[in-house]
């Protein structure tokens, strides 16, 4: 008899928990952090962007890790690096800064699950097309 009472209570709690789960908890899947590398060429006065999916509301880090001439030699030219949401024919930035390449993240942003983008653009400092590599770490 006592066991039946406990069972009845368990059914109630389990059903209640199921309800709460459906109405208040977002359905996030567990996603391990991944690093995507966006490599390309930035032309004078140009801009290029890259879209990616964030699965978990963890920080997104963006590192402009390499900026080189076509010969492969590194340069310390500053370019614009931005983080945002794809909109229209571009990436609409919520965070942007002018930076040279480095091995520490230049942009660190907490993002809820969704589609985001990183954009690199010339601020007028380029005298020739440059190759770039941007590391994007996200969950």
């Amino acid at each position: 008899m006592k066991r039946l009472a406990v069972f009845g209570l368990f059914v109630c709690v389990a059903a209640g928990a199921g309800c709460q789960s459906e109405t208040t908890q977002p359905d996030y899947s567990i996603v391990s952090p991944v690093t995507e590398t966006f490599q390309g060429t930035l032309n004078q006065q140009g801009a290029v962007f890259y879209s990616f999916i964030v699965g978990n509301p963890d920080p997104v880090s963006v590192t402009l890790a390499s900026l080189t001439k076509s010969s492969g030699t590194a340069v310390t030219t500053s370019v614009r690096l931005g983080f945002g949401i794809p909109a229209g024919e571009t990436c609409s930035t919520t965070t942007a800064l002018t930076t040279a390449s480095g091995l520490q993240a230049q942009v660190l942003q907490v993002a809820s699950p969704g589609v985001y983008c990183v954009i690199i653009s010339d601020t007028g400092a380029l005298t020739e097309p440059l190759n770039f590599a941007i590391k994007i770490k996200h969950s």
């Binding site: 890790a65 900026l67 492969g72 091995l103």
Partner: peptide, 29 residues
């Protein structure tokens, strides 16, 4: 950083005329 396009390593800092003693130091994650 390693080159995802396959050429080995793309540079953050480099020299085309490095000799013994040439060094690069950078903060890293």
């Amino acid at each position: 950083v390693p080159d995802v396009l396959g050429s080995g390593c793309v540079f953050t800092r480099s020299s085309e005329a490095a000799t013994a003693g040439t060094s690069f130091t950078l903060p890293v994650d």
